[in-house]
Computed example of a mutant assay.
Amino acid sequence: MEQQETLEYFGATTFRLRIAGLTIFHDTWLSRPSLLPQFLDINEIADADYILISHAHFDHLPGAEVIAKATGATIIANCEAINRLRDAGVPDTQLLPVSGGERIPLFTRDIRLAAAAASHDGGYTTSSIPLRQGGAPAAPPEPHHTLAVAEVHIWPSLHCLLPPGGHDALPEVLDTGVSYEGEATPFDGTVDVTRGMKYGLFRLRELVPAEALAADDGLRCFVEWIEDRGPAGRNVMSACDGGQLMFHVLKRAGGCRGGGKGAERGGILFNAHLGAYEGIVKAIHPQPDLVVQGIAGRANLNGRPFNGSAAGFAAELLRWLSEPERVIWCLHDECLIKPYRVDTAAASAMVESTTRTRVVDLVAGKPYVLL
């Protein structure tokens, strides 16, 4: 009996996709601060083929090394994330650095193992399966691309920006209907996000008065968790995102709705943050049937703050994608620091009133069947 193809949501931007006989994780933030809900025990994961990492921040990258070591999964990520994972002991044979623009064939576990078992004798390679030809002489053997059951197209994307006013002015609930205009300086951009991580989130214990930290259980829990990082800690992360990536996952034989070669539409596009390059989004082909879209923060269009609301940006992005059938919001759930959550009502209402796209609300930990 053929296994159902499903998508599961585990908070923030962490998803598990089962498709074409593969198990694929998008981001891996499962071992979260103790006061946040835990939807899946990372130590019980025994099955994963690929791990797609959107970027190297604290709520996206941690856990990738645990899953990879337990399952042998290949991690596809930017170089910042790859370097942090290598430092954490993930073998180089499981690390695939990308920067956007790549198309990568995806193989079942049996095919990958068969390629890895290829023997070399007298300058000749023997294998039970066809292998890729013409690669680097000393590279590990790879299956021939015709054996792939799916593929992933990687595209450069952008991290969202903070609303005007910076960290100190963040609301408790971020409303996707609120419109933001203008810039504080002509240079507002993701460099501010990196500085905020390095000199803000990573140094909260220095910045928050001791009495305030003692009185706020959630904040204290978050500070203790984020301090448990680096070579001596349990959580792998970086203050620098390393370059945001989008992942478009397509089945090789038919796609989610005919997403194979030459198809006009098919597959699932993961965009973890509210940012994008307009030209890149418009060039994606085939266009996805389903988009998983981060909905937090101020939108980042082409590296500049977007004038308007998160709702307006999301609707425009979906129009650039020719209005896919479905969109699923992410990065909108509970957090221990401001904003504590994102109100997606305005974004959902605008998308459904101005496009053909329907919003699908996932229940964390419950498989959503892909039709």
Rank of each mutant, 00 (worst) to 15 (best):
T6W: 03
Y9D: 01
L17H: 15
I19C: 07
I19N: 03
G21K: 05
T23S: 13
F25Y: 02
D27W: 02
P33S: 08
P33C: 07
P37A: 13
I45H: 12
A46H: 08
D47L: 03
D47N: 12
I53N: 09
F58P: 09
H60K: 05
P62H: 11
A64P: 07
A73T: 05
N78A: 06
C79Y: 15
N83K: 12
G89A: 07
T93L: 13
T93R: 15
G101P: 02
R103N: 12
T108K: 05
R109E: 11
R112T: 04
A115Y: 00
A118E: 12
T125N: 15
S128Y: 01
A136C: 07
H145G: 06
H145T: 08
L147T: 01
A150G: 02
H159E: 09
L161E: 03
P164V: 02
H167E: 02
H167T: 00
P171M: 04
E172F: 08
T190L: 09
T194F: 13
T194C: 12
Y199N: 08
Y199V: 00
E206W: 11
P209R: 04
A212E: 15
D217Y: 11
R220E: 04
F222A: 02
E224P: 14
E227V: 01
D228M: 10
P231D: 04
S238P: 14
G243P: 10
Q244R: 05
L245A: 12
M246W: 14
F247V: 01
L250I: 00
R252G: 01
A253R: 14
A253D: 13
K261N: 10
G267I: 03
I268R: 09
I268N: 06
L269T: 00
N271L: 10
A272N: 05
L274R: 00
A276W: 06
G279M: 06
K282H: 13
P288L: 04
G297W: 01
L301I: 05
G303Y: 05
R304D: 14
F306P: 04
F306D: 10
N307G: 13
E316R: 15
E316K: 14
L317K: 10
L336M: 08
L336G: 02
A346L: 03
V351D: 04
T357K: 07
G365V: 00
Y368C: 11
